[in-house]
Simulated scan of single mutants.
Amino acid sequence: MAEYDNTGDQEDDEFEPLTWRDRTYNWFQRVSFLVYSIIIVVLLALGMLWPRVFIVVESGHHAVKYEPLGGGTVTNPEHLYGEGIHVIVPWDSLYIYETRLQQRFLEFNMLSDEGLSLEIVISVRYRPERDMLGFLHQDIGTEYYERLIRPQLEAHVRETLGHRPAHEIYSSAGDLVQELNHVTTLTRIGDATKPYVIVQEVKLVNVDLPDIVDQAIADRYRQEQLRLEYDDRLLREEKEAERKRIEAKGIADYNDIIGPDSLRWRDIEAVKALAESPNAKIIMLGGGGTSQDGQPPLMFSLSTAPEQDQTPVVVQPNSATPAP
């Protein structure tokens, strides 16, 4: 059946047949809506299925596959998905786990041996065992920290610190760290060969003690420092007393060696040096009364008179007039 163009002049009763270009254009107009609809549906389906088909596993992570039509969770460690982009069927799922070393802080309250409330802050470093990721996902799930690690750590810390007094917890942190690191291995029931999670380190970060305990510890430390200060003072005084005894013994030995004649000679030299000074002076040699050798003390009166008159005047203490 031939097609004719009826878009010509209204008065022309004849119809011209359509060319192949016109027929193609009319066909595209009829099917364009269907083509556009199919493209939109395909794009929507691709956008919805893209995150389920193309899975990206980032660095330091591994993924466990779940196959609803193939037996469920794949527990074989050889079938784990490593880093990179992976393509799976839309009805399967990949659950990604971080297998690097992780750290979290745990805060909780506990009672000491005296019944005091303590606020404990600990840090834990852990990582899941790669070969046990399938069993970890099958038995516990992605929230394994809240379900497995946190309760185990709280019970371990309460058991370790609960029987200790508050001041001992504060003063023996180094020993407590060693005890805290002995965490019970978190293994699968019936298979203790490999743990779910490897707890690498547990540290005691902070211990908030009650005010009364803080004050008691501060007073004890202050008394200890005062005791150390008194010990230092006693030691210093003992050293000073020993120094003075040695000094006195040295002076006594010196006097015994040089004798009284040497001391008198030193007195004469001192008097001579004093006599050479220009000012007037009175010099007395010997002590009060009579000296040890039976000689009375002598008194000299020196002045700044001319050279011909500079004759020392010797005064005897018991004489009425000075000697010429």
Rank of each mutant, 00 (worst) to 15 (best):
V57C: 06
R127K: 08
W20G: 10
G115H: 03
L46N: 12
I55M: 03
R104W: 05
F108Y: 11
I39C: 04
F28I: 14
K65R: 02
Y97D: 06
D92G: 01
R30V: 14
L80S: 09
T19L: 08
S59D: 08
Q102F: 03
I40S: 04
V53F: 11
W91F: 03
S93V: 03
Y36A: 15
S112M: 12
F105C: 03
V31C: 12
G82Q: 02
D113E: 15
G71T: 07
E67V: 01
Q29I: 11
I55G: 02
Y25K: 13
I122A: 02
V74H: 01
N26V: 03
E114Y: 11
A63Y: 02
G82P: 02
V56D: 12
D113I: 07
V124D: 05
L44V: 01
N26A: 11
L116G: 14
R21M: 15
F108V: 06
V56Q: 09
F28C: 15
L49D: 10
V74D: 02
R21H: 13
F33T: 11
L69P: 01
G72Y: 12
I96F: 04
E119N: 14
S59E: 04
P77E: 10
Q29V: 12
E83Y: 00
G60L: 11
L49E: 10
S112D: 13
V124G: 05
P128Y: 08
L49M: 15
I39Y: 07
Y66F: 10
G47T: 06
I122L: 14
L111Q: 14
S117M: 13
P68M: 04
Q103V: 06
G84H: 08
H62N: 10
W27I: 12
